[in-house]
Amino acid sequence: MPHSRPPLRRLSLAGTLALALPLLGGCAATQAPLPAALSVARQQAAIPFTAATANRIAGSDDYRLDWAADHAGTVRVYAGTSPDGVTTGTPVALGPASGSAVVTGLEPGRRWYFTLVPDNGAPLVIADRALHLPTAPNLRDIGGYRTTDGRWVKMGLIYRSDQLDRLSDADLAAMGALGLSAVADLRTATERARGADRLPRGAAPLVLDVVADSEGSLGGDMRKADAAIAAGKGVEMLIEANREFVSLPSARSAYAALLRRLEQAPPTATLYHCTAGKDRTGWATAVILTLLGVPRETVMADYLLSNAYLRAKNEATQAALAKAGTPIPPAYLEQVLTVRPDYLQSAFDEVERRHGSFDAYLRDGLGLTEADIAALRRLYLAGEAVD
């Protein structure tokens, strides 16, 4: 199917000003010189963007794009429906090295990818990470992040989500367009029995029970969990749970199996999820992004995004429990419905305590070889390392 590339209908001020650059002599003369150590070939293979985002504007089908690139004069933007990107045809936006644009007129109901093409260096494909599915609000792409060495995590290949048993038919159809070949379920047997996944055609189920070996509150014993929450011990419960994501044999087995699946998956996509898509799924994402070289502060920021994506769902849960007359104070419920930096940090601390380093955790805890790690980086990173 050909990619739709409608003409730009509206640009930001930065994009509009950029259209006049060729008439004014452009900015090529003011570009900073590239480091001498980089060969010409490597310069062209490196992605010059240091920041780039695409976000659908609330209440519309328009998109706001923002980017910043080093050693570039102008940036052309193309739109398409494939994560492979589009670099020909009519651009939907044009701007300077650091710019923004509002793109309108794209066909609704599609997932749009935007290829940022600099006049110096390799292009970058970005998209709105959110899928905007009402019945799976925490379903999102983990790509589109820059690594410490200047590469970028590819989009359209790895997705994280909350529960899939409540998917509407429309949202299930939208999932079907993602090209998923596998969906890894990180939930317990009790959770799976209570709500079986709805999966799109072609997506094979993969059961990876992270806390199967747990004797704690998240091991399937809801009485323990309810007692901890009612006592206001939700923070302690989730800190301990995150430690178990590192220490439990079932957790190590589950996360190792997920990484092995990812090593075999491309060019098809993989999705993994738990119930809220924030704790077991949160650590899975932290492991993948850290392995790929995404800085810790970015990993933490992605983790905390669950609070925004789950806000409406959590408010509905609080309202339903209040209506049912639950005696648990809302503040106690909030401890377990949301994520906090301390939760994820406790998992990283457990890695250091048990293994000494994250690299040792990958090797000794998850059984990954240097070849496995190199393969995952080759499959899921775009661009040439610049450091």
Rank of each mutant, 00 (worst) to 15 (best):
Tyr361Met: 09
Arg223Ala: 15
Val339Thr: 07
Thr135Ile: 05
Leu337Ser: 03
Ala316His: 09
Leu133Thr: 09
Leu11Ile: 10
Ala68Thr: 13
Gly150Ile: 09
Asp119Ser: 06
Asn138Met: 06
Arg76Met: 11
Arg296Phe: 06
Phe245Gly: 03
Glu244Arg: 04
Arg56Asn: 04
Ala184Val: 10
Thr285Asn: 01
Trp112Gly: 10
Pro267Thr: 02
Pro249Lys: 01
Tyr145Arg: 12
Leu19Asp: 12
Glu107Lys: 14
Leu157Cys: 03
Gly195Phe: 02
Ala312Asp: 14
Ala347Asn: 03
Ser253Ile: 04
Thr188Asn: 11
Glu240His: 13
Leu368Pro: 00
Ala170Trp: 02
Ser82Leu: 09
Ala286Arg: 00
Leu366Thr: 01
Ala79Leu: 08
Thr188Asp: 03
Tyr343His: 05
Asp149Thr: 14
Arg192Asp: 06
Arg296Tyr: 07
Leu180His: 00
Glu350Thr: 13
His3Ile: 11
Ser306Tyr: 03
Gly150Val: 10
Arg42Met: 14
Asp221Phe: 06
Ile158Tyr: 01
Asp372Arg: 00
Arg223Asp: 15
Ala254Leu: 01
Arg146Ile: 06
Arg354Cys: 13
Ala382Pro: 12
Ala20Thr: 14
Gly150Phe: 07
Arg56Ile: 10
Thr369Ala: 04
Asp226Ile: 12
Gly109Glu: 02
Trp112Gln: 08
Phe358Gln: 08
His273Arg: 00
Ala225Asn: 12
Pro6Cys: 07
Tyr63Leu: 05
Arg166Gly: 11
Ile328Lys: 07
Ala136Tyr: 05
Ala45Trp: 10
Ala54Asp: 04
Gly282Asp: 01
Gly150Ala: 09
Gly121Lys: 05
Glu370Ile: 07
Arg146Glu: 11
Leu124Thr: 09
Gly367Met: 00
Pro327His: 09
Ser214Lys: 03
Ala97Gly: 07
Ala251Pro: 02
Glu236Phe: 10
Leu381Val: 07
Glu107Arg: 15
Pro134His: 10
Gly89Pro: 04
Ala189Glu: 12
Ala312Arg: 13
Tyr78Asp: 04
Ala286Lys: 00
Lys224Ser: 11
Gly202Arg: 05
Asp372Gln: 00
His71Lys: 09
Ala14Gln: 14
Gly59Tyr: 06
Leu199Asn: 02
Ala20His: 13
Ala331Leu: 12
Thr104Gly: 12
Val77Lys: 08
Val339Asp: 04
Val77Glu: 04
Thr50Glu: 13
Leu19Tyr: 13
Leu34Pro: 10
Ala284Trp: 01
Ala225Lys: 13
Val211Asp: 14
Ala308Tyr: 06
Ala68Trp: 07
Pro205Asp: 00
Thr50Arg: 13
Leu262Asn: 00
Gly109Ala: 08
Tyr361Val: 09
Ile47Ser: 06
Leu304Cys: 01
Thr326Cys: 01
Val125Tyr: 03
Arg378Leu: 12
Asn138Asp: 10
Ser39Lys: 12
Ala45Glu: 15
Ala347Ile: 06
Pro96Val: 13
Tyr343Val: 05
Asp149Ala: 12
Leu333Thr: 03
Glu352Lys: 14
Asp119Tyr: 09
Ala319Cys: 10
Arg146Gly: 06
Gly219Gln: 06
Arg223Cys: 10
Asp165Arg: 04
Leu271Ala: 03
Glu315Pro: 05
Ile328His: 05
His3Gln: 14
Ala41Thr: 15
